[in-house]
Design a protein around this nucleic acid. Sequence first.
DNA 1: GCCGTTTTCGGCCCGACTGTTTTCAGTCG
Length: 569
Amino acid sequence: MKNKDVVDILLKFADVLEFKGEAPFKVNAYRRAAWNISDVEDVEKLWREGRLGDVPGVGKALVEKLDQFFRTGHIRQLDEHLENVPKDLFDLLSIQNFGPKTAALAYKELGVETVDDLRAVVEDGRLANLPGMGPKKVANIKKSLELFETAQKSISIGMAVEIVAEVIAWLQENAGDKIGRISPAGSVRRYKETVHDIDVLVETNDGEAVIELFTQFPKVTRVLGAGATKGSVLLDDRFQVDLRAVPAESYGAARQYFTGSKAHNVKLREIAKKQGFKINEYGIFKGEAKIGGESEERIYHALDMDWIPPELREDRGEIEAAAEHALPELLTLDDIRADLHAHTTNSDGQHTLEELVGMMRRRGYAYMAVCDHSKSVFYANGMDEGRLLEAVEAIRRLNAEMSDFTVLAGAEVDILSDGALDYSDDVLAQLDFVVASIHSAFKQDPTARTIAAMENRYVDVIGHPTGRLISRREGFVLDMDRVMEAALRTGTALEVNSFWDRLDLNDVNVRKAVSKGVKLSVNTDAHHQRHLPMMALGVGTARRGWARKQDVINTFPLDELRRWQKRNR
DNA sequence: GCCGTTTTCGGCCCGACTGTTTTCAGTCG
């Protein structure tokens, strides 16, 4: 049973209780427990050890229900509730403007069980006849029903970062001096691996005009709402972007508020309240007096906390650390001196060695490692030993021509199904840098194969360690404790692959690695020039895992990297 | 349903917007 299964059932439970009109605080208790469980490493392990109750927000009643779930795959109380709710309750509740109260009314009075049922009663006018329903409410639900078909459920952080940059650049170009500061907010700013909508915050004294302008952005295909403080649009009928407009004196408070996460904000405001403050999107207040709001820093400082980097704001201990002035100094994009995993036309990359080196130099790196595929990965034009050694020679010649940049001759060598590597030690010994990755036979004991690869003295990094593809493929099942123990023992780094659909290791595993002292390597795995900026996604993911500069080998100057390699060979 | 440096009972984050309403309920973030 994975964390996600447990989180899903608790969220469903909360939806059902809300539908049934249970007390909001009870509903919220289920949701809060779900959030907290999504952050633990392995909830099933906690259950086996009888430590479920250690998770914040999980008390006696939930321990009992989850115990049922682990033992039988069901929760009796939930099954009983489900006998008396619409068949497609969870789909129905995901429709905007159609909340639990309305759903309950439509179910009770009209027998609405499915999205199609809802569509029917909207069309024939029966929904409009219910008490409290007027023509505008029905029209809004009708609009939401259309979006239910097309709207994307989640957006990758890579896509979101590009969209947000485009929107901000366009507004800056077209709004002139109407706007001041402008920033991403929400989960994009926190570098969450997938986001539901994209939030942008802008400082202005003329919100109405700026939001009107925003609705003119060329990719807007639908305007969902536009007022003086908030505009909401759909780009290409798929991506929802919300713009919030606030005056300078509340820009910081709004930025704090709209960055979230919700769990972080709830806890922060609880603490503020206990200290006699009130925080909202306009500022921080002591009694009636506003004592801050212009800057985000001021909000945290007023509570005697250090400013908390957005990537940490998940209520995973960052609030307590900020209060103790013990937050880590996180890795930054500027700390990165090299990209240690990129491909050329020798395997499946789109650029030649010379082109790739030019691009890396323009990004300001001091060195890089070329790591093309090895021979077993035939679908990616993997190189046999002959071609590899020719490529190494070409790199040596190129290095001789450069004084300010170094290319490490490397390989992304496959970890074969029996745990052996795709090149012999004699060949690996001629390389400057070795990434080892699993690309096949995911079910054949990936833990043992990964550890076997780490035991090889020439392997520096394990590439995309879990093999997951976000929203497409679960990673293979790795025993992370054993892998990290071996990484520590053999002096092998684990990759934080920055490709938008990998982000592997993920934030939770990065945190675990950092806490154990395992080194990381944040790389793009670039196959094309347009992949190089994804370094920011890997850095964001590493920051979400509390990684510092000293945890990441490609922040080292080259001579330090070489000393690190030497110690571990 | 959870939880305790205000509480083992009685609180639980806060506000905007919308639409339907003669003072508020529902939804959302």
